[in-house]
Design a protein around this nucleic acid. Structure first.
Length: 822
RNA sequence: GCGGAUGUGGUGAAAUUGGUAUACACGCCAGACUUAGGAUCUGGUGCCGCAAGGCGUGGAGGUUCAAGUCCUCUCAUCCGCACCA
């Protein structure tokens, strides 16, 4: 029979659907595996990155099913978000229609790719049922004080007309549309993720064995913990009266308390409250005010280009020396880190040095190298010996930090503090296509939570999406309601939630039995089973792109900890093992529509079939590496499958694996068996530890090549019994076909390794002289060391002439090395 | 600047973790079958050299009987963060 990918694949896809082949069991006594790939946004159709992602998770899922595990391999759609609204504006469609049409199409693509997802647990985060439970969690978090509303300076994208979280600002621009963001003062809801900063950082150590180092480092840097000294700088009398006694002091933070005696000025952020006060009360010149205002309006990128500042004409008193130190306003001081003010030590900090040089401020060195001279043309930032530092003179600067902090604490003039770069997560968005925030604003009662029995607060369908303003705000009736406390007229919150809220708990929702979907988000028992087993917590294999290293993966970790503290679950981390796949490239660049270098999965499947697409993707590179697309290599994958299918005509039909008497076989037959079982060994290694599917496939190809050198049909049959089993996770359709025709599907299960095939009566050893390979010898497996050396000497006689052998090394089964002199 | 990775044939990549470098595949070359081949099968293919032989894992050293693998220095590329006090 001819290999016809299309017919054969369709047949098995129908079979799997009809037999509910991939639904997890509700039997919680079985050992489980939870395999999850990051769910897609329903943008319209799958791209190759998706295909790679889901091929990887599918391969794990199918393998573990064969091994007898109860496997949860769900999929859903991260279906709220801006593109649906943008499409609506462009095409005059409704975001909901656009989204759900796309979902239908993409589900069809999943099917044609043969992905073994659970159909019954499919969800879209824009489903009202999903919104209902999410809003419930939001209310819980508000009650616990983990969600709050405050007015503040926010990242505003003028193009998307919405607020962005800090994590969503990339190089000062919107992560989605690349528009430079501006700061806007407005009300916004925040999750108190900073309350978990320490735990989010500390628990990274629990992930060390399962997560890529790169991701751990990125999260560590993002949280950005630093320890240091915090203290107040007090104004001198003249400054006090200049400020009308409104401010007595301000707070500064430093990680270098050892440089305290070198402080020669202090600098405030342009947004600092003292600077604002001085502007409002005209305490500095018009010219200075204009300059500070300009600093504030400069984008963060431009602000980095050159340091500039204004002398505020104020002085503070140095806490240890009592000397007067000038106070400046400087553009390099950030308002949202620490207290928005710094002590400046130009002698030992590059930024402070640049600024001091520019404005001719004093530079007081207090640390010198242990040996060598201090250079005066740059800041000395290394460890050294303290001088000009009062009672701390002569100390190691690193060690002195402890003593100086202690001195501040003992004298109640400062304290040890920890600062984080991580900010609270701003979650409200001024857009329509998102989950409404379930609160009501009452003139008398303030923010009032919606009652859980009223959930979901669903989106109105009859909206006009114009791109101007918030459609919920503009809707004629939706926002008008009555206060849930006092009954008076009230206004519904019209902001919706950041879509990252949905993706922060979807992996928990998948644990819920569809039978209880209406009733509850998930149950503790279900979560316990799927997320917690054998000392491991979380999803067993989580697979997705590195681009989520911070955003999604940090938020999901935060939610897990919050849900734990709310009593919904009892573990700390959501993902036990994380596999970050590499990008899919073509012509050396990331596949993208704008570059016009995409390959359409649908067209590929139509031409070659899903098995070919899957095989190529897994064979061309290990999962974590970039994958360079190559049309002729795709062709090669197709040819392999075809050969694999054609040669199955050598198999004898059987329901059990043939029992072969190894000793009676010919050399080629023995070799073929050895190659087959080597492939099996390698497969176990790859699926459980290494995940380098390219080598597993190469092993199968080697075994195929070896089988083809002999004609024993029992050896062929055994070979196919095993090879179709280990390849089934990779190229499922053709393997099910071959297995069904010949083995009644009995071989798609755990396979036993037979050790006797690896036992050989002779072995080829390489012979090296001084480590240089010269020739090889074939020796019997039980040959003595002496006889091996004799044989080696004989065979290598040519290279040994006139030489004295000084050392003889035999590495069993590998090589002989003769060390000579002469 | 800080942090994380990666450098192996013409190409994608292997190497049992210190033991015969380049498995497997793509490409290329030759042959067979063919009216034909962008089909199929067989063989060859690291580089230099007619050969003997020599040289080869970004570069330079080192440890070792033995180094792609370990150590030191260095170069290049990619990614992330970045005036974080």
């Amino acid at each position: 029979m001819e290999y016809n990918a299309q017919n054969l694949e369709k047949k098995w896809q129908e079979y799997w659907a009809k037999n509910r082949s991939f639904e997890p069991s509700e039997d919680f006594t079985k050992e489980k595996k939870y395999i999850l790939s990051m769910f897609p946004f329903p943008s319209g159709r799958l791209h190759m990155g998706h295909v790679r992602n889901y091929t990887l998770s599918d391969t794990f899922a199918r393998y573990y099913r064969q091994q007898g595990f109860n496997v949860l391999h769900p999929i859903g759609f991260d279906s709220f978000g801006m593109p649906a609204e943008n499409a609506a504006i462009k095409n005059g469609s409704h975001p909901k229609g656009w989204t759900y049409d796309n979902i239908e199409y993409m589900k069809g693509e999943f099917k044609t790719l043969g992905f073994s997802f659970s159909k019954e647990r499919e969800l879209a985060t824009s489903d009202e049922l999903y919104t209902k439970f999410e809003q419930g969690f939001i209310i819980d978090m508000f009650e616990k004080g983990l969600l709050y509303r405050k007015k503040g300076l926010l990242n505003w994208c003028p193009h998307d007309q919405t607020v962005l979280a800090n994590e969503q600002v990339v190089d000062g621009c919107c992560w989605r549309c690349d528009t430079p963001i501006v700061k806007k003062d407005m009300n916004q809801y925040y999750f108190k993720i900073t309350e978990y900063a320490d735990e989010l950082l500390a628990d990274l150590s629990k992930l060390e064995n399962g997560w890529p180092k790169q991701v751990l480092t990125m999260q560590e840097n993002w949280i950005g913990k630093s320890n240091g000294l915090e203290f107040d700088l007090f104004f001198d009398d003249m400054s006090l009266s200049k400020l009308n006694n409104t401010f007595k002091s301000f707070d500064v933070f430093t990680t270098r308390p050892d440089t305290i005696y070198g402080v020669s000025y202090t600098a405030l952020a342009p947004e600092h409250s003292i600077v604002t006060y001085m502007i409002e009360n005209s305490l500095i010149s018009e010219e200075a005010i204009a300059k500070i205002k300009e600093m504030k309006n400069t984008s963060s990128i431009d602000r980095q280009k050159e340091k500039s500042g204004i002398d505020l004409g104020l002085h503070v008193v140095h806490p240890l020396t009592g000397k007067k130190v000038p106070a400046w306003c400087a553009n390099f001081v950030l308002m949202d880190y620490g207290s928005g003010a710094v002590m400046a030590v130009p002698a030992h900090d590059e930024r402070d040095f640049d600024f001091a040089k520019k404005y001719d401020l004093p530079i007081n060195a207090v640390i010198k190298p242990f040996d060598g001279e201090l250079e005066s043309d740059k800041a000395y930032t290394e460890v050294g010996e303290l001088f000009n530092s009062g009672e701390f003179d002569g100390m190691n600067s690193k060690k002195s930090q402890y003593n100086i902090i202690k001195y501040f604490e003992e004298n109640s003039i400062g304290k040890k503090t920890t600062n984080y770069k991580l900010k609270d997560w701003g979650v409200s968005r001024q857009r329509y296509w998102g989950a409404p925030i379930p609160f009501v604003h009452c003139d008398d009662c303030g923010i009032v939570m919606e009652k859980k029995e009223n959930l979901p607060i669903a989106l109105p369908q009859d909206v006009e999406i114009t791109g101007e303003g918030n459609p919920l705000e503009n809707h004629p009736t939706w926002k008008y309601c009555s206060c849930l406390k006092c009954g008076k007229d009230a206004i519904r919150e019209t902001d919706t939630m950041d879509t990252f809220v949905e993706s922060s708990w979807y992996f928990l929702r998948f644990c819920a039995s569809p039978a209880n979907w209406e009733k509850e988000a998930f149950s503790k028992e279900q979560i316990k089973y799927w997320m917690h087993q054998k000392g491991h917590e979380g999803v067993d294999h989580y697979i997705g792109g590195i681009e989520h290293a911070i955003l999604h993966l940090l938020y999901a970790r935060f939610f897990t900890k919050v849900f734990r503290d709310l009593g919904y679950l009892d573990f700390d981390e959501p993902f036990d093992r994380l596999l970050t796949q590499g990008m899919v490239l073509k012509d050396g660049a990331k596949m993208s529509k704008s570059k016009g270098n995409t390959v359409d999965p649908d067209a590929l499947i139509e031409k070659y079939g899903a098995d070919t697409a899957r095989l190529f993707i897994l064979f061309a590179a290990p999962p974590t590496q970039e994958l360079e697309w190559n049309d002729s290599a795709v062709e090669g994958a197709y040819k392999f499958i075809k050969r694999f299918f054609d040669r199955s005509s050598n198999i004898l039909k059987t329901d059990t694996i043939p029992q072969i008497e190894h000793a009676s076989l010919s050399k080629d037959e023995k070799f073929a068996r050895k190659k087959v079982y080597e492939a099996l060994k390698r497969a176990n290694d790859v699926y459980n530890e290494k995940f380098t599917f390219n080598t597993l496939i190469a092993g199968t190809m080697e075994a195929m090549n070896a089988l083809n050198t002999q004609t024993n049909s029992e050896v062929w049959t055994e070979g196919y019994w095993i090879l179709t089993s280990i390849m089934e996770p990779v190229i499922p359709h053709v393997c099910w076909q071959i297995s069904n025709e010949n083995f009644s599907l009995n071989n798609l299960s755990k396979q036993k390794i037979i050790e006797e095939v690896f036992v050989e009566d002779s072995v080829t050893l390489g012979v090296s002289i001084n480590g240089k390979r010269r020739c090889e010898i074939e020796v019997s497996i039980d040959a003595s060391k002496e006889s091996i050396i004799d044989m080696a000497k004989e065979k290598a006689a040519k290279w040994l002439e006139g030489q004295t052998i000084v050392k003889e090394i035999v590495v069993p089964n590998k090589l002989v090395n003769l060390v000579v002199k002469g």
